[in-house]
């Protein structure tokens, strides 16, 4: 016989929110949202011990030298520098100098937007054209990682800003381009065409530190 007339027992659900809150707080506390972000870099291949190191025939004017010593003092093109954030505009001016542009470089120059052309000073004492220009960055073993990252950040920032401006994006938007999508990959290639990211990170000196 079916038991009729009896009320269905209702579970009191007023504490449901409390239970959910408790779980929520637990996950809030334990959560570390994955932060797989950082400055990317491709290291040069290992030098072949059988081959002598290549002669450096580069002209001094095509090298933008940054040295950092073990007490975190910065020397940029033989001048001391205290504010790291100045580096970005210095590097941009150096790359975009177009001092002695050959035909290819002149064509490249003509494709640049006005804002980048304006940075070109065509000075004799600075870089010939972007493909030749190299930013050389040398630290010491005693340099703190903090400064190293700050400088590398500025250097990469200078390049990304140039790339972005060429295709009408900000540096942030440029870095966000997804190369798996053909349209965005096309943009990426267009932005980098003729402008290699010539950042040379030399092996650190061994004056300070272990």
């Amino acid at each position: 016989m079916a038991r009729s007339g009896r009320k269905l027992p209702a579970i009191n659900s007023s504490s449901m929110a409390d239970i959910a809150f408790l779980l929520l707080v637990f996950f809030l506390v334990t959560t570390t949202i994955a932060t797989d972000k950082g400055l990317t870099l491709t290291l040069p291949p290992k030098a072949d011990p059988n081959e002598p190191p290549p002669d450096i025939t580069k002209n001094q004017r095509n090298i933008f030298k940054i040295l950092v010593n073990s007490s975190d003092r910065i020397l940029v093109e033989d001048e001391p520098l205290t504010d790291v954030t100045e580096l970005r505009s210095m590097v941009k001016e150096f790359i975009l100098n177009f001092g002695k542009a050959d035909q290819d470089a002149q064509d490249l120059y003509n494709t640049l937007p006005q804002s980048l052309k304006a940075l070109s000073q065509q000075s004799e004492s600075s870089s010939d054209f972007p493909k030749e220009a190299v930013v050389s960055f040398k630290a010491d073993r005693g340099t703190s990682y903090d400064i190293y990252i700050a400088i590398l950040d500025e250097l990469q920032g200078a390049f990304y800003e140039i790339y972005g401006e060429r295709i009408g994006l900000t540096a942030d938007e440029f870095r966000g381009l997804d190369r798996k999508k053909p349209a965005e990959n096309e943009k990426y290639k267009k932005a980098r065409d003729g402008f290699p990211m010539n950042i040379s990170i030399a092996e650190p000196t061994k004056i300070g530190g272990n």
Binding site: G38, L39, T42, P45, K46, R141, D146, P204, G209
Partner: peptide, 27 residues
Amino acid sequence: DETKMGIVADIQEKMRDVNARKLMYAA
């Protein structure tokens, strides 16, 4: 961020030895 560059340079050296050349400094 309080580390000195020496140990980082050593890691990079070893990475080049085994041809693992893609590096990311987490930040």
